[in-house]
Design a protein around this nucleic acid. Sequence first.
DNA 1: TGCTACTACATAGACTGTCTATGCCATAAA
DNA 2: TTTATGGCATAGACAGTCTATGTAGTAGCA
Lengths: 109, 109
Amino acid sequence: MGRDEIYPGTLDLLILKTLGRESPMHGFEIARAIQQRSGDVLQVEEGSLYPALQRMLVKGWVKGEWGLTDENRRARYYRLTAAGKRQLESEVSQFERVIGAMRKVIEKA
Amino acid sequence: MGRDEIYPGTLDLLILKTLGRESPMHGFEIARAIQQRSGDVLQVEEGSLYPALQRMLVKGWVKGEWGLTDENRRARYYRLTAAGKRQLESEVSQFERVIGAMRKVIEKA
DNA sequence: TGCTACTACATAGACTGTCTATGCCATAAA
DNA sequence: TTTATGGCATAGACAGTCTATGTAGTAGCA
């Protein structure tokens, strides 16, 4: 309620997918990419993004390396690990399953 | 993560829709209806269901009346209020918007 | 009568995950 | 040298779901 975007539990999926599409990326880029691809509907706050990335680092779904951006700022570049790819696949199929089930509950008939 | 079903923030929608489809219903019936309609994918735990119904009572989205089931057990029968119907519509359209946006992020291309 | 199973409602407490707010630091621009 | 901006990060609040537990009434059965 009050919830405006991004259902809890789906952020990881968005991040993993974004990294799966293009790697490596740093945090800001990931957030921007999600926002753009979603047609400006989904906005990932930094206070959600970084904790999520930390969790994924710990779980070994992503690896991070410090580097420099085009504009010479330090940034942490993330890329998917093999475990991350598996996780991504699993989350995608779970997403489809759950959303499909919700559709059945919601649809007219 | 760990999350198995029902993304937080979507339970209200499921309950509202179920009540919108058939009223009045008591808690157990609502849970059963959601489970059945979802093809046994979504399972609403009692510890989630009753707090959700309480919240909705407070917010005036549903009204509850005590009654007796076919089997002579006391049960609280819920029905949508006008405010509940508006809320339902709003949640459905928000759901479509967010899920549509997620699809754009997730889809192949 | 006593036991068990089931229906139905309900709450406490843990836990997860997101958000708001804030801070730090470095670079670039004014 | 001040300001804006990019980028990372954490603390604290908060919402919402789950697990576990409890109550109580009904039905069935021995």
